[in-house]
């Protein structure tokens, strides 16, 4: 009898905690920007060439490789050549890179619009490098650090978030990369498959706001 009672209490407890856990997880998703399967809103941001850039400027795109990055974070700098290579590899296939600098130059003086222009010219960026003047886009996405990647696929319902995380498994040394998380995800979408690794984590510099 006692055992039965314990069992009953235990099952109550488990149900209650599962309910609680579910509730918290739901809350986190809301407060952390986009999750996999969400639809990304349109952007309209100033590019280093002086023009405004929106997703709708790319009518032929199948999707977008959106990368939050900045001028001087060592992880961002270590990724620059790889970001250029990704644009070269996937722009022609319908997935251009869109880079967005989420940092507030008043907090991070290395990330002014002028220094972004210098960086883009110096490195020969082949993709837009956008200035998040209102400091709202990074929060909308839930980007917490640089670099931080969001892969969007154009679907009938909108630009669906298909992958969030790192470019690959070795931010420091391109030659030591074993898994190209982002490239694999784009290739899977291009092949009409479901993305197998949807989220990864990487160390980055916190977004400076």
């Amino acid at each position: 009898m006692k055992n039965k009672r314990i069992l009953f209490v235990l099952s109550l407890v488990i149900t209650a905690s599962l309910a609680l856990a579910g509730f918290t997880a739901g809350e986190n998703e809301d407060s952390y920007g986009y999750s996999i399967g969400d639809y990304a809103a349109e952007i309209n941001l100033l590019n280093v060439d002086g023009n405004m850039v929106s997703y709708e400027d790319y009518p032929k795109a199948k999707g977008f490789i959106v990368i939050f990055t900045c001028n001087t974070c060592p992880y961002a700098v270590a990724s620059e050549d790889r970001i250029i290579a990704l644009d070269a590899e996937f722009k022609g296939k319908g997935y251009p890179v869109i880079a967005i600098n989420p940092n507030n130059p008043e907090v991070q003086p290395d990330d002014t619009y002028e220094l972004m222009q210098a960086k883009a010219k110096d490195k020969g960026f082949t993709f837009p490098y956008l200035y998040d003047k209102t400091n709202t886009v990074y929060a909308q996405y839930g980007a917490t650090k640089t670099p931080h990647v969001y892969l969007l696929e154009n679907t009938k319902k909108g630009r669906m978030v298909q992958y969030i995380g790192a470019i690959d498994d070795n931010v420091r040394t391109a030659s030591a990369v074993k898994e190209r998380f982002l490239a694999n995800a784009v290739n899977e979408l291009l092949a009409g498959k479901e993305v197998s690794v949807k989220e990864t984590k990487a160390i980055g510099c916190s977004v400076k706001q």
Binding site: Y32, T144, K145, G165, A166, D169, N170, V171, R172, T173, A176, K178, F181, T200, K201, A202, I203, G204, C205, S206, V207
Partner: peptide, 20 residues
């Protein structure tokens, strides 16, 4: 340890990867 994706979650599931 360059493969941060494998160890960040072992420190904490809550960690997005930013420091501090």
């Amino acid at each position: 340890d360059a493969d941060a994706n494998s160890w960040i979650p072992k420190v904490s599931d809550e960690w997005q990867g930013a420091i501090p």
